[in-house]
Design a protein around this nucleic acid. Structure first.
Length: 698
DNA sequence: AAAACTCCTCTTTTT
DNA sequence: GAGGAGTTTT
């Protein structure tokens, strides 16, 4: 406990009754949670299994488990440490029979759910491209604990719409028939279980003496409700979060939960962690100036004893290519000066399409980079196909998976055959697989098709007994026996091989759960490279050097948020999250012109910049005669920035009076200050100032 | 079942 | 401006 600061200690020691820990960025909140867990077990003899500790990401959960493991001698394998979804999964595997599902339910991700919704829309002859909107509406309903029946009974509530209701009912029905749950069901059905079976709830309430919730600001209504239910009896809930870092409103997260905590839990103690261990005071002051302009926030002011540090840079350029080139140049200089390794640098942006210009510039400059995020491993087609086979093998009722694989690889079972089976299944309210099995023997289907159906169903059934073995064995068998292997190119084979390795020695059920709940696979890849990612993806990370790009009206805040007060507040928080990722250097940039969806737009600097205290900033405007904050300044003629072609560039051969001939590896700085790195065969790499070194080009 | 064509969309995305 | 998905064609 001695390495905790007074506020952290306070948070640790308050163990009876509700506690809200307002943990600013970089204030050591993970430390508080892990130490609190250990403290409860060690000092207060709480069984490790009596603490329900939740986070939002698998990564955070893994870290939490590992760190607690280091703090305690106990075996914590069975402890309730995990994401809320995985914990619900665990509860439901045991208890879901109460709700009329089987314990072997499949878990559908966003992709599976969209497939199902599209299928339903097609069936209802509703314009199929609406599926995204429908999906998100259903998302929101479930996140608000509105199940189809409640929705029907709601009258005009919740934006009732008959078509939506029809689709929602059918969707939920299809899920149940497939014995499948989507992500939101994991929460919603757990709540339903607890509401309808108080005995079951009681069992969990009794055994869970403490509830610890990380990232509290990210809870949606159903998740909050669930947590409240669990904590209702002992009232020992410790909520850790930061309202200023709430950036998932569009997923249903509601900052209000953190703001209302004291009302919902009367007598709650509130602890503020305002000491920051990450950034310099300049970075903290600048970001504070930005975030404190938001209404309705819990006042907090972060401080550090690290000193002022480097000023926050702001640079305004002509267009996104110049912005990107500028960034590449600055990174290179930092690298050559030895101020930062590439892995110390994070380049963040609001929207993915911004990565393109940045990637081009970094590639041109020969700098190593990685784009973090994007399509995750588990969303690749080949992985999803194999997983769908495995699901179907373990859960024959899984219609979505069956539709996915029945003709993958092509085995001549086309749309016509499938729709016959669909019709039959609906009539008999049976699952597709059972119908297919029977259809292989009788009914009015051409005999050649019958054979195909028969061999498909027996294939799945032959694989079923292997479900008891090692998950890797089952996956291997699937890849071989289904003929899937033949359809693969080398990349995909590689991916599948990786999947199989990760399944080794695991139980298939457990493996599928893990895979279904593990949606982002992007581990911080080892190696020295610059990281590129969206602001959302940067949450929870830190870098010594952070570039925030596109700090313009229309990009940050994004144009869709403009004019809506609470969305602007969220954009501001997003900006804040980005700024507080920086340890030592924070560099903001924007550009006057930007291409957004095939249109070149004239941009203005973000409104968020107006609040920046200039004394902590270094302002560089590389757009000549253009003063962004001066009214009417926009149409001043733009003096071209004349590019002086450098005399010395990498690759040139040069001669030095003492060391002789060498090859320039790199150049940085401009004009008088230009420096070069030269490789001399006799003595190796040398860093030289052009002004002093008296080099001649040869 | 592949190839060619058209149409549509285009913010962020922990599980 | 480009990628994805659906549709039509071969």
């Amino acid at each position: 406990m001695h390495d905790l600061n007074p506020q952290q200690k306070e948070a640790l020691q308050h163990i009876n009754g509700p506690l809200l820990v307002l943990a600013g960025a970089g204030s050591g909140k993970t430390k508080v949670i892990t130490h609190k867990f250990a403290y409860l077990v060690k000092t207060h003899k709480t069984p490790a299994d009596a603490i329900f500790a939740v986070t939002f990401t698998n990564k955070a959960a893994g870290e939490m488990r590992e760190r607690i493991g280091h703090l305690l001698p106990n075996d914590i394998r069975s402890a309730w440490i995990g994401t809320l979804h995985s914990q619900c999964g665990r509860i439901l595997r045991k208890e879901i029979k109460n709700l009329g599902y089987g314990p072997d339910f499949s878990i559908y991700d966003e992709d599976d759910r969209c497939n199902l919704i599209r299928h339903i829309l097609k069936d209802f002859k509703i314009y199929e491209a609406l599926y995204k909107g429908v999906s998100s509406r259903i998302n929101i309903l479930k996140a608000s604990l509105i199940d189809p029946d409640t929705f029907l009974a709601s009258g005009d509530g919740f934006g009732f719409d008959e078509k939506l209701a029809k689709v929602y009912i059918r969707y939920q029905d299809e899920l149940q028939r497939s014995n499948a749950l989507d992500f939101d069901d994991l929460i919603m059905l757990t709540v339903k279980l607890f509401r309808e079976f108080p005995k079951v709830l009681r069992k969990y309430q009794d055994s869970l003496a403490h509830v610890l919730v990380d990232e509290f600001q990210d809870l949606n209504a159903s998740q909050y409700h669930l947590v409240k239910l669990l904590a209702k009896q002992h009232k020992n809930i410790c909520a850790v979060g930061d309202d200023d870092q709430s950036i998932y409103r569009f997923r249903g997260a509601d900052v209000q939960h953190i703001l209302n905590f004291e009302k919902d839990f009367p007598g709650a103690k509130v602890v503020r962690l305002e000491r920051n261990y990450r950034s310099t005071q300049n970075i903290l002051d600048v970001s504070h100036a930005v975030i404190s302009a938001n209404p309705n926030r819990k006042a907090k002011k972060l401080w550090t004893d690290r000193g002022r540090g480097e000023k926050v840079h702001y640079c305004w350029l002509n267009n996104e290519e110049e912005e990107a080139k500028h960034i590449a140049k600055v990174i290179k200089e930092l690298y050559l000066k030895g101020a930062a390794a590439y892995k110390d640098v994070g380049v963040l942006y609001r929207v993915n399409l911004q990565s393109r210009a940045l990637e081009d510039a970094l590639r041109d400059a020969g700098l190593p980079y990685r784009v973090v995020g994007g399509i995750s491993f588990y969303q690749r087609k080949e992985i999803k196909d194999i997983i769908a086979y495995a699901r179907l093998v373990t859960n024959h009722g899984d219609n979505v998976s069956l539709r996915r694989v029945i003709n993958t690889p092509p085995r001549g079972i086309g749309a016509a055959t499938l729709s016959k089976i669909e019709g039959e299944a609906k009539k008999k309210s049976a699952c597709l697989f059972d119908i297919l099995k029977v259809a292989a023997k009788n009914s009015g289907i051409v005999s050649s098709t019958k054979d195909k159906l028969g061999s498909f169903s027996s294939l799945i059934e032959e694989l079923a007994p292997r479900a008891g073995q090692d998950a890797a064995e089952l996956l291997k068998a699937i890849v071989e026996r289904t003929g899937y292997r033949e359809t693969l190119d080398d990349d995909r084979k590689q991916n599948i091989a990786e999947l199989i390795v990760s399944a080794e020695g695991r139980d298939i059920r457990e493996f599928l759960d893990k895979v279904s709940l593990q949606t982002s696979h992007e581990e911080a890849a080892p190696g020295d490279h610059i990281s590129l990612m969206t602001l959302h993806n940067a949450k929870g990370l830190e870098f010594p050097v952070v570039f925030l790009t596109g700090i313009e009206e229309g990009v940050l805040p994004y144009f869709k948020a403009i004019g809506k007060e609470d969305e602007i507040a969220e954009e501001r928080r997003l900006f804040y999250v980005g700024m507080t990722r920086a340890r030592d250097m924070l560099l903001l940039s924007g550009s006057r012109k930007r291409r957004l969806y095939s249109r070149i737009q004239e941009q203005e600097p973000s409104r968020f910049l107006k609040a920046l205290p200039r004394e902590y900033c270094l302002w560089i405007e590389k757009v000549a005669e253009y003063h962004p904050f001066k009214a009417g300044g926009r149409d001043n003629k733009k003096a071209e920035i004349v590019k002086v072609k450098p005399l010395f560039a990498s690759g040139c051969r040069v001669k030095h009076p003492v060391w002789g001939v060498g090859v320039i590896r790199d150049c940085y700085g401009d004009g008088e200050d230009q420096k070069v790195m030269v490789n001399f065969p006799t003595i190796g790499l040398k860093r030289l100032s052009l002004k002093l070194a008296n080099l001649t080009k040869i």
